[in-house]
Amino acid sequence: MRSDHHIVVLGAGYTGMFSAIRLAHRTRRLGVRITLVNPSSRFVERLRMHQVAAGQRLAEHRIPDLLAGTGVAFVEGTATALDPVARQVVVDGAGTLAYDTLVYALGSSTDTGLVPGADLHAFTLNSPEVAGRFAARLAEVAQAGGAVTVCGGGLTGIEAATEIAESHPGLRVTLVSLDEPAAMMGGKARAYLQRALERLGVTVKAGARVVKVLPDAVELEGGELVHSDACLWTTGVKVAPLAGEAGIAVDDRGRVLVDATLRSISHPEVHAVGDAAAVRMPWGVIHGTCQSGLPTAQYTADAIARRLRGRPVRPFRFGYFHQPVSLGRRDAVIQFTHADDIPARWHLTGRAAVAYKELVSGSPLLTYRLSKRMNVTTIVSKGGRALQQAAL
Protein backbone atom coordinates (compact mmCIF):
# COMPACT_ATOMS: atom_id res chain seq x y z
CA MET A 1 0.00 0.00 0.00
CA ARG A 2 1.24 3.48 -0.87
CA SER A 3 1.48 5.88 2.05
CA ASP A 4 -0.60 8.45 0.13
CA HIS A 5 -3.57 6.15 -0.54
CA HIS A 6 -6.59 8.41 -0.99
CA ILE A 7 -10.11 7.34 -0.01
CA VAL A 8 -12.99 9.51 -1.23
CA VAL A 9 -16.44 9.12 0.32
CA LEU A 10 -19.30 10.48 -1.77
CA GLY A 11 -22.29 11.52 0.35
CA ALA A 12 -22.48 12.54 4.00
CA GLY A 13 -25.78 11.00 4.97
CA TYR A 14 -26.03 8.40 7.71
CA THR A 15 -23.89 5.85 5.86
CA GLY A 16 -21.33 8.16 4.28
CA MET A 17 -20.68 9.96 7.54
CA PHE A 18 -20.22 6.70 9.45
CA SER A 19 -17.96 5.28 6.72
CA ALA A 20 -15.68 8.32 6.85
CA ILE A 21 -15.42 8.51 10.64
CA ARG A 22 -14.90 4.78 11.13
CA LEU A 23 -12.37 4.68 8.30
CA ALA A 24 -10.42 7.47 9.97
CA HIS A 25 -10.28 5.49 13.21
CA ARG A 26 -9.46 2.15 11.57
CA THR A 27 -6.71 3.56 9.31
CA ARG A 28 -5.19 6.14 11.64
CA ARG A 29 -1.77 4.40 11.60
CA LEU A 30 -1.73 3.68 7.87
CA GLY A 31 -1.12 7.19 6.59
CA VAL A 32 -4.12 7.27 4.26
CA ARG A 33 -6.01 10.42 3.29
CA ILE A 34 -9.80 10.51 3.54
CA THR A 35 -12.03 13.09 1.86
CA LEU A 36 -15.78 13.36 2.42
CA VAL A 37 -17.83 15.09 -0.29
CA ASN A 38 -21.35 16.44 0.22
CA PRO A 39 -23.46 19.21 -1.39
CA SER A 40 -24.17 20.87 1.97
CA SER A 41 -22.21 21.35 5.17
CA ARG A 42 -25.35 20.55 7.16
CA PHE A 43 -25.83 16.99 8.38
CA VAL A 44 -29.41 15.91 7.77
CA GLU A 45 -31.16 13.62 10.25
CA ARG A 46 -33.45 11.91 7.76
CA LEU A 47 -35.11 9.97 10.58
CA ARG A 48 -36.52 13.26 11.89
CA MET A 49 -37.67 14.96 8.69
CA HIS A 50 -41.33 14.29 9.52
CA GLN A 51 -40.84 16.42 12.64
CA VAL A 52 -39.50 19.29 10.53
CA ALA A 53 -42.47 18.92 8.19
CA ALA A 54 -44.83 19.25 11.14
CA GLY A 55 -43.21 22.56 12.10
CA GLN A 56 -40.85 21.46 14.86
CA ARG A 57 -37.40 23.00 15.24
CA LEU A 58 -34.52 20.56 15.51
CA ALA A 59 -30.90 20.96 16.55
CA GLU A 60 -28.66 21.74 13.59
CA HIS A 61 -25.51 19.68 13.12
CA ARG A 62 -22.62 20.76 10.89
CA ILE A 63 -20.54 18.18 9.08
CA PRO A 64 -17.16 19.85 9.87
CA ASP A 65 -18.08 19.75 13.58
CA LEU A 66 -18.94 16.03 13.41
CA LEU A 67 -15.62 15.36 11.66
CA ALA A 68 -13.54 17.43 14.10
CA GLY A 69 -10.55 15.48 15.37
CA THR A 70 -10.78 12.71 12.76
CA GLY A 71 -8.43 14.13 10.14
CA VAL A 72 -11.09 13.66 7.45
CA ALA A 73 -11.08 16.49 4.91
CA PHE A 74 -14.51 17.86 4.00
CA VAL A 75 -15.31 19.16 0.51
CA GLU A 76 -18.61 20.97 0.10
CA GLY A 77 -19.91 20.44 -3.42
CA THR A 78 -21.99 18.20 -5.66
CA ALA A 79 -20.36 15.29 -7.47
CA THR A 80 -21.37 15.83 -11.10
CA ALA A 81 -19.28 13.22 -12.92
CA LEU A 82 -17.40 10.05 -12.10
CA ASP A 83 -14.65 8.37 -14.13
CA PRO A 84 -14.01 4.92 -12.66
CA VAL A 85 -11.24 4.19 -15.19
CA ALA A 86 -9.19 7.28 -14.34
CA ARG A 87 -10.46 7.04 -10.74
CA GLN A 88 -11.59 10.63 -10.61
CA VAL A 89 -14.64 12.51 -9.36
CA VAL A 90 -15.66 15.92 -10.66
CA VAL A 91 -17.09 18.05 -7.86
CA ASP A 92 -18.96 21.25 -8.71
CA GLY A 93 -17.03 24.17 -7.24
CA ALA A 94 -14.10 22.01 -6.12
CA GLY A 95 -12.62 20.65 -9.34
CA THR A 96 -11.48 17.06 -9.81
CA LEU A 97 -10.63 14.66 -6.99
CA ALA A 98 -8.46 11.63 -7.71
CA TYR A 99 -9.04 8.55 -5.59
CA ASP A 100 -7.54 5.13 -4.99
CA THR A 101 -10.64 3.83 -3.21
CA LEU A 102 -14.15 5.24 -3.54
CA VAL A 103 -17.02 4.78 -1.08
CA TYR A 104 -20.23 5.48 -2.98
CA ALA A 105 -22.84 6.61 -0.42
CA LEU A 106 -25.09 8.97 -2.36
CA GLY A 107 -28.25 7.48 -0.88
CA SER A 108 -31.78 7.87 -2.21
CA SER A 109 -34.67 10.31 -2.31
CA THR A 110 -38.43 10.23 -2.74
CA ASP A 111 -39.41 9.88 -6.39
CA THR A 112 -42.04 12.42 -7.45
CA GLY A 113 -41.85 11.40 -11.09
CA LEU A 114 -44.09 8.35 -10.74
CA VAL A 115 -47.42 10.21 -10.87
CA PRO A 116 -48.31 13.29 -12.96
CA GLY A 117 -48.34 16.48 -10.92
CA ALA A 118 -46.46 15.13 -7.92
CA ASP A 119 -43.31 17.00 -8.90
CA LEU A 120 -45.26 20.25 -9.27
CA HIS A 121 -47.83 20.15 -6.49
CA ALA A 122 -46.49 17.83 -3.77
CA PHE A 123 -43.87 18.38 -1.10
CA THR A 124 -41.37 15.74 0.05
CA LEU A 125 -39.10 15.04 3.00
CA ASN A 126 -36.00 14.96 0.80
CA SER A 127 -34.28 17.85 2.57
CA PRO A 128 -34.75 20.17 5.56
CA GLU A 129 -35.38 23.03 3.14
CA VAL A 130 -38.25 21.27 1.33
CA ALA A 131 -39.68 19.94 4.61
CA GLY A 132 -39.44 23.47 6.00
CA ARG A 133 -41.40 24.88 3.07
CA PHE A 134 -44.07 22.27 3.67
CA ALA A 135 -44.17 23.28 7.36
CA ALA A 136 -44.72 26.92 6.36
CA ARG A 137 -47.56 25.91 4.05
CA LEU A 138 -48.96 23.67 6.78
CA ALA A 139 -49.17 26.61 9.18
CA GLU A 140 -51.22 28.55 6.62
CA VAL A 141 -53.53 25.60 6.00
CA ALA A 142 -53.98 24.98 9.72
CA GLN A 143 -54.95 28.59 10.33
CA ALA A 144 -57.67 28.21 7.73
CA GLY A 145 -58.81 24.83 9.06
CA GLY A 146 -57.93 23.16 5.76
CA ALA A 147 -57.01 19.68 4.59
CA VAL A 148 -53.68 17.89 4.17
CA THR A 149 -53.04 14.68 2.26
CA VAL A 150 -50.11 12.36 2.93
CA CYS A 151 -49.48 9.91 0.07
CA GLY A 152 -47.82 6.67 1.08
CA GLY A 153 -48.73 4.21 3.82
CA GLY A 154 -45.21 3.07 4.68
CA LEU A 155 -43.54 3.96 7.95
CA THR A 156 -42.46 7.41 6.69
CA GLY A 157 -45.99 8.33 5.62
CA ILE A 158 -47.46 7.09 8.89
CA GLU A 159 -44.94 9.06 10.95
CA ALA A 160 -45.64 12.20 8.92
CA ALA A 161 -49.45 11.87 9.10
CA THR A 162 -49.51 11.28 12.86
CA GLU A 163 -46.96 14.03 13.56
CA ILE A 164 -48.97 16.52 11.51
CA ALA A 165 -52.28 15.52 13.11
CA GLU A 166 -50.87 15.80 16.62
CA SER A 167 -49.12 19.13 15.99
CA HIS A 168 -52.13 20.68 14.20
CA PRO A 169 -55.31 19.17 15.68
CA GLY A 170 -57.56 21.48 13.64
CA LEU A 171 -56.38 20.06 10.34
CA ARG A 172 -58.14 17.37 8.32
CA VAL A 173 -55.40 14.85 7.62
CA THR A 174 -55.87 12.04 5.09
CA LEU A 175 -53.40 9.19 4.63
CA VAL A 176 -53.64 7.59 1.18
CA SER A 177 -52.10 4.14 0.86
CA LEU A 178 -52.04 1.54 -1.90
CA ASP A 179 -52.02 -1.18 0.79
CA GLU A 180 -53.04 -1.27 4.42
CA PRO A 181 -50.79 1.17 6.33
CA ALA A 182 -47.77 -0.59 7.81
CA ALA A 183 -48.66 -3.78 5.96
CA MET A 184 -45.21 -5.15 6.78
CA MET A 185 -46.00 -5.30 10.52
CA GLY A 186 -47.70 -8.05 12.48
CA GLY A 187 -51.44 -7.99 13.15
CA LYS A 188 -51.28 -6.72 16.75
CA ALA A 189 -48.86 -3.91 15.93
CA ARG A 190 -51.01 -2.87 12.95
CA ALA A 191 -54.13 -2.86 15.11
CA TYR A 192 -52.42 -0.61 17.65
CA LEU A 193 -51.24 1.69 14.88
CA GLN A 194 -54.75 1.88 13.42
CA ARG A 195 -56.18 2.89 16.80
CA ALA A 196 -53.56 5.63 17.04
CA LEU A 197 -54.54 6.96 13.61
CA GLU A 198 -58.20 7.00 14.68
CA ARG A 199 -57.37 8.71 17.98
CA LEU A 200 -55.51 11.46 16.12
CA GLY A 201 -58.34 11.89 13.64
CA VAL A 202 -56.38 10.74 10.58
CA THR A 203 -58.63 9.51 7.76
CA VAL A 204 -57.14 6.47 6.04
CA LYS A 205 -57.87 5.60 2.43
CA ALA A 206 -56.35 2.15 2.04
CA GLY A 207 -56.29 0.29 -1.25
CA ALA A 208 -56.27 3.61 -3.11
CA ARG A 209 -53.95 4.40 -5.99
CA VAL A 210 -53.04 8.02 -6.67
CA VAL A 211 -53.08 8.77 -10.40
CA LYS A 212 -52.60 12.55 -10.35
CA VAL A 213 -51.71 15.33 -7.94
CA LEU A 214 -53.59 18.58 -8.61
CA PRO A 215 -53.03 22.01 -7.05
CA ASP A 216 -55.97 21.52 -4.68
CA ALA A 217 -56.67 17.78 -4.73
CA VAL A 218 -55.33 14.28 -5.15
CA GLU A 219 -57.03 12.19 -7.84
CA LEU A 220 -57.46 8.49 -7.13
CA GLU A 221 -57.89 5.66 -9.57
CA GLY A 222 -61.57 5.58 -10.45
CA GLY A 223 -61.87 9.37 -10.51
CA GLU A 224 -62.37 10.19 -6.81
CA LEU A 225 -60.90 13.54 -5.79
CA VAL A 226 -59.53 14.02 -2.28
CA HIS A 227 -59.41 17.74 -1.47
CA SER A 228 -55.94 18.77 -0.43
CA ASP A 229 -54.63 22.22 0.47
CA ALA A 230 -51.18 20.68 0.90
CA CYS A 231 -49.89 17.31 -0.30
CA LEU A 232 -46.91 15.45 1.16
CA TRP A 233 -45.47 12.71 -1.07
CA THR A 234 -43.66 9.90 0.78
CA THR A 235 -43.84 6.94 -1.60
CA GLY A 236 -41.43 5.78 -4.30
CA VAL A 237 -37.63 5.81 -4.16
CA LYS A 238 -34.97 6.88 -6.63
CA VAL A 239 -31.19 6.86 -6.37
CA ALA A 240 -28.60 9.20 -7.85
CA PRO A 241 -27.80 8.31 -11.50
CA LEU A 242 -24.07 9.09 -11.19
CA ALA A 243 -22.84 5.48 -10.98
CA GLY A 244 -24.90 4.23 -13.91
CA GLU A 245 -23.90 7.22 -16.05
CA ALA A 246 -20.25 6.44 -15.32
CA GLY A 247 -20.55 2.87 -16.60
CA ILE A 248 -20.52 1.19 -13.20
CA ALA A 249 -22.76 -1.88 -13.16
CA VAL A 250 -26.14 -1.05 -11.61
CA ASP A 251 -29.51 -2.78 -11.24
CA ASP A 252 -32.80 -1.64 -12.83
CA ARG A 253 -33.22 0.93 -10.04
CA GLY A 254 -29.76 2.43 -10.46
CA ARG A 255 -28.24 0.83 -7.36
CA VAL A 256 -24.63 -0.33 -7.62
CA LEU A 257 -24.37 -4.09 -8.06
CA VAL A 258 -21.97 -5.36 -5.41
CA ASP A 259 -20.28 -8.62 -4.53
CA ALA A 260 -20.38 -10.34 -1.14
CA THR A 261 -17.92 -7.78 0.23
CA LEU A 262 -19.91 -4.75 -1.02
CA ARG A 263 -17.49 -3.92 -3.83
CA SER A 264 -18.75 -3.05 -7.29
CA ILE A 265 -18.84 -6.14 -9.49
CA SER A 266 -17.50 -4.06 -12.41
CA HIS A 267 -15.08 -1.75 -10.59
CA PRO A 268 -13.81 -3.36 -7.35
CA GLU A 269 -12.09 -0.17 -6.15
CA VAL A 270 -15.63 1.24 -5.71
CA HIS A 271 -17.46 0.24 -2.52
CA ALA A 272 -21.20 1.01 -2.32
CA VAL A 273 -23.13 1.37 0.92
CA GLY A 274 -26.65 2.11 2.12
CA ASP A 275 -29.46 2.88 -0.32
CA ALA A 276 -26.97 3.26 -3.19
CA ALA A 277 -26.07 -0.44 -3.12
CA ALA A 278 -27.99 -3.51 -4.27
CA VAL A 279 -26.95 -5.75 -1.38
CA ARG A 280 -28.21 -9.31 -1.71
CA MET A 281 -28.70 -11.67 1.18
CA PRO A 282 -29.91 -15.27 0.62
CA TRP A 283 -33.55 -14.17 1.13
CA GLY A 284 -33.35 -11.18 -1.24
CA VAL A 285 -32.01 -7.65 -1.72
CA ILE A 286 -31.84 -5.51 1.41
CA HIS A 287 -34.25 -2.56 1.32
CA GLY A 288 -32.89 0.84 2.21
CA THR A 289 -33.20 1.87 5.84
CA CYS A 290 -30.89 3.38 8.42
CA GLN A 291 -31.08 -0.01 10.16
CA SER A 292 -29.38 -1.71 7.21
CA GLY A 293 -27.36 1.27 5.98
CA LEU A 294 -25.19 1.79 9.05
CA PRO A 295 -24.06 -1.86 9.11
CA THR A 296 -23.00 -1.61 5.44
CA ALA A 297 -20.97 1.49 6.32
CA GLN A 298 -19.37 -0.21 9.32
CA TYR A 299 -18.54 -3.30 7.32
CA THR A 300 -17.11 -1.34 4.39
CA ALA A 301 -14.84 0.78 6.59
CA ASP A 302 -13.53 -2.36 8.27
CA ALA A 303 -13.14 -4.21 4.95
CA ILE A 304 -11.15 -1.37 3.39
CA ALA A 305 -8.90 -1.18 6.45
CA ARG A 306 -8.31 -4.94 6.38
CA ARG A 307 -7.43 -4.93 2.68
CA LEU A 308 -5.00 -2.06 3.17
CA ARG A 309 -3.27 -4.21 5.77
CA GLY A 310 -3.25 -7.21 3.45
CA ARG A 311 -5.73 -9.16 5.54
CA PRO A 312 -8.63 -11.32 4.27
CA VAL A 313 -12.20 -10.04 4.28
CA ARG A 314 -15.23 -12.13 5.13
CA PRO A 315 -18.57 -11.68 3.29
CA PHE A 316 -21.06 -9.14 4.60
CA ARG A 317 -23.87 -10.63 6.69
CA PHE A 318 -26.89 -8.73 7.94
CA GLY A 319 -30.27 -9.42 9.51
CA TYR A 320 -33.14 -7.08 10.39
CA PHE A 321 -34.22 -6.64 13.99
CA HIS A 322 -37.14 -4.20 14.20
CA GLN A 323 -39.59 -1.87 12.46
CA PRO A 324 -39.87 1.25 14.65
CA VAL A 325 -42.47 3.93 13.94
CA SER A 326 -43.37 7.03 15.93
CA LEU A 327 -47.02 8.07 16.20
CA GLY A 328 -46.56 11.69 17.15
CA ARG A 329 -44.36 12.74 20.07
CA ARG A 330 -46.25 10.78 22.73
CA ASP A 331 -46.84 7.39 21.15
CA ALA A 332 -45.05 4.79 19.05
CA VAL A 333 -45.08 1.13 18.09
CA ILE A 334 -42.08 -1.13 17.57
CA GLN A 335 -42.51 -4.37 15.62
CA PHE A 336 -39.65 -6.76 16.26
CA THR A 337 -38.75 -8.97 13.31
CA HIS A 338 -36.88 -12.03 12.17
CA ALA A 339 -33.64 -11.46 10.31
CA ASP A 340 -35.44 -11.48 6.93
CA ASP A 341 -37.75 -8.65 8.12
CA ILE A 342 -40.76 -10.93 8.64
CA PRO A 343 -42.65 -9.83 11.79
CA ALA A 344 -41.87 -11.78 14.96
CA ARG A 345 -44.34 -12.32 17.83
CA TRP A 346 -43.15 -9.39 19.91
CA HIS A 347 -44.00 -5.71 19.67
CA LEU A 348 -43.68 -2.68 21.94
CA THR A 349 -46.13 0.20 22.37
CA GLY A 350 -46.75 3.38 24.39
CA ARG A 351 -44.14 5.20 26.46
CA ALA A 352 -41.62 2.37 26.28
CA ALA A 353 -41.90 2.44 22.49
CA VAL A 354 -41.49 6.25 22.47
CA ALA A 355 -38.24 5.94 24.44
CA TYR A 356 -37.07 3.12 22.19
CA LYS A 357 -37.81 5.10 19.01
CA GLU A 358 -36.04 8.18 20.34
CA LEU A 359 -32.99 6.03 21.14
CA VAL A 360 -33.04 4.69 17.58
CA SER A 361 -33.40 8.17 16.03
CA GLY A 362 -30.58 9.61 18.12
CA SER A 363 -28.20 6.66 17.87
CA PRO A 364 -26.34 7.69 14.67
CA LEU A 365 -24.98 10.92 16.16
CA LEU A 366 -23.92 9.10 19.33
CA THR A 367 -22.29 6.43 17.18
CA TYR A 368 -20.29 9.05 15.27
CA ARG A 369 -18.99 10.64 18.46
CA LEU A 370 -17.97 7.33 20.00
CA SER A 371 -16.47 6.01 16.76
CA LYS A 372 -13.75 8.65 16.86
CA ARG A 373 -12.23 6.78 19.82
CA MET A 374 -13.44 3.17 19.58
CA ASN A 375 -15.00 0.58 17.31
CA VAL A 376 -18.76 0.83 17.82
CA THR A 377 -20.94 -1.87 16.27
CA THR A 378 -24.26 -1.13 14.60
CA ILE A 379 -24.88 -4.72 13.51
CA VAL A 380 -27.55 -6.15 15.80
CA SER A 381 -28.07 -9.33 13.76
CA LYS A 382 -25.99 -11.10 11.11
CA GLY A 383 -28.91 -13.14 9.86
CA GLY A 384 -28.56 -16.19 12.08
CA ARG A 385 -30.93 -19.04 11.38
CA ALA A 386 -32.90 -17.12 8.74
CA LEU A 387 -29.78 -16.56 6.65
CA GLN A 388 -28.69 -20.18 7.01
CA GLN A 389 -32.12 -21.53 6.07
CA ALA A 390 -32.44 -19.20 3.07
CA ALA A 391 -29.07 -20.40 1.81
CA LEU A 392 -30.21 -24.04 1.73
Rank of each mutant, 00 (worst) to 15 (best):
R46N: 14
Q335G: 12
L58H: 02
E221M: 02
Y192W: 10
A272F: 09
R306M: 14
R369T: 07
A276E: 02
A353H: 03
I21Q: 06
F43T: 07
G384K: 09
T124P: 06
V44H: 14
L220N: 01
V333R: 03
V89T: 02
I34F: 02
A249R: 13
A160D: 04
S41V: 04
L23I: 08
K188C: 00
A131C: 04
S363Q: 12
G107R: 04
V89G: 02
A147S: 15
L327F: 06
A118P: 11
R311E: 15
F43H: 15
H347S: 12
G16S: 11
R26Q: 14
G284T: 11
A160I: 03
P84S: 07
F43D: 03
V148P: 04
P116W: 05
L102F: 09
A79D: 01
K382F: 02
L214R: 12
S177Q: 10
H287S: 13
Q88L: 10
L138G: 10
C151I: 14
K382E: 15
P169A: 08
I21C: 07
I286K: 00
S371D: 00
H267V: 00
L220E: 01
L36F: 11
T156E: 03
E166I: 00
A54S: 14
Y356R: 09
L262C: 14
L36K: 10
R133E: 15
G384S: 08
Y299E: 11
G157F: 08
V226W: 05
A53W: 04
V72C: 10
D275P: 10
V37T: 04
L47P: 00
R309H: 07
Y14G: 00
Q298L: 05
I158M: 13
T289S: 13
G154V: 07
Q335C: 13
D100A: 09
R345Q: 12
P39Y: 11
L232R: 08
T203N: 08
A144M: 04
R33E: 09
V270A: 02
L242K: 08
P343Y: 13
V91D: 03
A355T: 12
I265S: 02
